[in-house]
Design a protein around this nucleic acid. Sequence first.
DNA 1: CAGAAACGATACCGTCTCGTATCGTTACAG
DNA 2: CTGTAACGATACGAGACGGTATCGTTTCTG
Lengths: 192, 192
Amino acid sequence: MSTRVERTHTAVMEAATALLLEGGPTAITIDGVVARSGVAKSTVYRHWTTRDELVVDVFDHIAPKLEAPDPTLGFEDALRRLVHSMLAMMTAPGWLRVLPAMLLLKLHQHDIAEVEQRMHDAQLKVFQDVLQRGVSEGRIGADDDPELLLTLFVGPILMAGLTGSTELNGALADRSVSQFLGALDAVAPTAP
Amino acid sequence: MSTRVERTHTAVMEAATALLLEGGPTAITIDGVVARSGVAKSTVYRHWTTRDELVVDVFDHIAPKLEAPDPTLGFEDALRRLVHSMLAMMTAPGWLRVLPAMLLLKLHQHDIAEVEQRMHDAQLKVFQDVLQRGVSEGRIGADDDPELLLTLFVGPILMAGLTGSTELNGALADRSVSQFLGALDAVAPTAP
DNA sequence: CAGAAACGATACCGTCTCGTATCGTTACAG
DNA sequence: CTGTAACGATACGAGACGGTATCGTTTCTG
């Protein structure tokens, strides 16, 4: 079983998360959380000193982690695994409703910007690990900017998720990979 | 000169837009607009029946249009022009602060979703016009989904603008084009 | 099992916000 | 030049919201 402190904590977090998904970040209101969770307002303020603190906590808690591909895989295989992890991440429950909120709030709220920063760093690290294999295999120049490559690689998937311009499915994922690889070969062919 | 109705209208719009840029969509408040524009509240409600109506109007007014490339240009040249127009659009004053707001609000507000839809349609139309040249030149299969191609093409630039993962400059634009073209050639070479 | 920590219920305050109403004043069009 | 439409100023009501305070009750912990 869990202790009472844990129970009330998660009850509030779940309520706040639900409100965020249903009505956006402004829908996370103390009274709303109280009504939805059944937890008393005084108790909420015992766990979080302010509303903003709770909001940040919700974002920090719901932010999905990008799964790292098997280290034994080669460059291309790892890249294919990665894009599917990326897809899984984007289609994680509710994430498509949270991500826009995060991208907006980070502009005006430092705490949220930090959460997004940490998430981005973690993703970049995973990506760089895959890139390194590409360098080893002579597919990628070691001087290429990883951030730029990440943007080129993941941009389409992010756009699809945010704008709904295209369905987030395997077809898009495959095209993303082949486009990324195709561009590499067009610039620096596989065999010298 | 301009009529008085026009003057008050634009005064309110400018104030509301400034508030949007500075504090996000929730910062657009009637009292705030009144204070900032110097226009009386009663006058504001003479032009817009509700706050949401004003907000939608602001978004609709600030949404930039994607410039269409010269019709005489060939596929590749048109594509290069297009990506630079796209870049110009993203770096338009304040747009990087408005776009996230739009992507969030469209999830919960139909009016905003319609504004975004119209903008997307206009962009797609411009892009399809360029695509057509690619089809004529045998670079692109006529059965390829334009929406998917647009996503693959513009995704990186959108991501760079939204997340700040990479600077929005000519380097990114050029890489976007070469990646897009490189992928085409890898699948369907230029000369049969 | 006893003391302490956490909790629930409730009331309350100050502020913000939307929207309405009133009325004297100003600009504009015919 | 005159009537009318638009405007400014202001007050007001009602509700939402953040945050504080109080006090009796429950649950954990040692």
